[in-house]
Design a protein around this nucleic acid. Sequence first.
DNA 1: GTCTATACGCAGATAGAC
DNA 2: GTCTATCTGCGTATAGAC
Lengths: 199, 199
Amino acid sequence: MSTGRRAGRPAGAPQPRREQLIALAVELVGEHGYGSATLGRVAERADLSKASVLHHVGSVADLLRAAYEQVLDAMVEEVGAVVEEAGPSQRPRAYITALVGHFREHPHHTRVLSEAIVHFGAVGESRDRWGPLAELLAAARGAREPMPEGDLRTAALGIGGAIDAIVAERQRDPGYDSARAAEQLADVVESTLLSPAGR
Amino acid sequence: MSTGRRAGRPAGAPQPRREQLIALAVELVGEHGYGSATLGRVAERADLSKASVLHHVGSVADLLRAAYEQVLDAMVEEVGAVVEEAGPSQRPRAYITALVGHFREHPHHTRVLSEAIVHFGAVGESRDRWGPLAELLAAARGAREPMPEGDLRTAALGIGGAIDAIVAERQRDPGYDSARAAEQLADVVESTLLSPAGR
DNA sequence: GTCTATACGCAGATAGAC
DNA sequence: GTCTATCTGCGTATAGAC
């Protein structure tokens, strides 16, 4: 309790050095991918020795995992908040536009997440990536006759893939109007899945 | 001309050893990604020494590049043939189902292409990946009022992303009915982009 | 916390004999 | 064509002094 540490930071909480290194790792991965985020390069950017970096983060693998999780958490938190503010019928659109918007505001985060599945192996880890979207779609359809389970899964999957593609294109070409693309995608979703006529 | 080589293989054409090694590389990348396709592992599977492998392929980078190009060419050739057989208005559906079907028949090819952009760096190399699809869509719309350039690009991009997601899901879960998913996607494409009413 | 020095493993590639 | 032996480079991690 009465350590010499300044108040406001619970005992055992991450130190500022560690936070700095994680932020640096996000930058490096965001710019040139996981392959280029090596111990030496992190140390160089932080103006520290390699040994010193390891002292704070334990191992390179741990550092990259922490960077990934921080980026993922930020995305989930922002998108989740936006979606919850909207009514059920507007949630698919809110989800799409918030997700696309998030990566437009945080370009570095794009690569950190898009390369994560390849880098961490773990294909199974990507399971249910679009499960939450599927639930949003089902709820938005409300009283309509329910979609077959498989078709709903495919719908969420396809929309998710389209989002990925829009985000990737924006990264490739910063002049690409991803906000407009998101609206266009939301229009299609609403007209095919949520329109009175059904499909 | 009168070398001792058996006829039927033009001078300077790739030797069978090289072909075998490329096929092996496709297997390795398909199973565990580019990261695991090392010189040592290729040599082991081919039951050759590392030096011998290099004698035939020049370098590991060249081998992986050749594997990638072979897989890409196979896909372009098959899908191209199917699309050309169809009439203009059926081509978007033919494209989608042929592409999804191709990867269902060649599961190893999936990873070789999906990880290619990350592995070879070269974000710009993926340019116009969906350009051909955009042209198919424009042609299928025929006499209808033309779509704005940007919207057509986004449509092709989104459809392409959805295809990627369907293919990836099939790889993750071999029980997933990707053929049905492809038809479902084609239905949406036709009803939103090609229906008489437009959107 | 920070450093220098060092060890270790692995992947890619070369040399040269057979 | 094929091998064994060897070299180089890089990335990770540890030891131990300050």
